[in-house]
């Protein structure tokens, strides 16, 4: 499964869960956020993890500390750029597992906290 296919599946899943998708692939110099969405009042930064194999590991291990720090920085960049504050924000992870067609999707709300020392101008 390609990254894009995983993200498509994740997007469909989030829509079914009642999320509103705001941006797909929000890009900056530092990297990109797969999906930015709203669920109720909350602004949600979503990281999609797609794996075809069985060896996936625990969902909480799917996004390592370095990736968390990077996503935190990207989220700050998004907030500064879009000027949407004040609001409530969080990070969700969508894990897409298995081959296309027989895949399983798992959504982890509030998967991790804003990482330490990531506030940049």
């Amino acid at each position: 499964m390609t990254g894009k296919e995983g993200e498509d599946i994740a997007e469909q899943y989030l829509l079914k869960q009642g999320y509103r998708i705001l941006v797909r692939n929000y890009r900056t110099k530092v990297g990109e956020i797969d999906i930015v969405a709203r669920e109720g009042n909350a602004l949600v930064f979503v990281e999609v993890k797609a794996r075809s194999g069985v060896r996936f590991g625990l969902p909480q291990d799917a996004v390592d500390l370095r990736k968390q720090a990077k996503l935190s920085r990207l989220a700050m960049a998004y907030l500064r750029h879009k000027n949407v504050l004040p609001c409530i924000c969080r990070f969700d992870v969508v894990a897409v597992m298995g081959a296309k067609g027989k895949h399983k999707v798992e959504l982890i709300r509030n998967a991790f906290d804003l990482s330490e020392s990531t506030v940049r101008c």
């Binding site: 504050l85 409530i88 804003l114």
Partner: peptide, 13 residues
């Protein structure tokens, strides 16, 4: 107030 608002958004008090 950006940093303060952004951190508040992520639940810092």
């Amino acid at each position: 107030g950006f940093f303060e608002r952004a951190l508040t958004a992520f639940g810092r008090r």
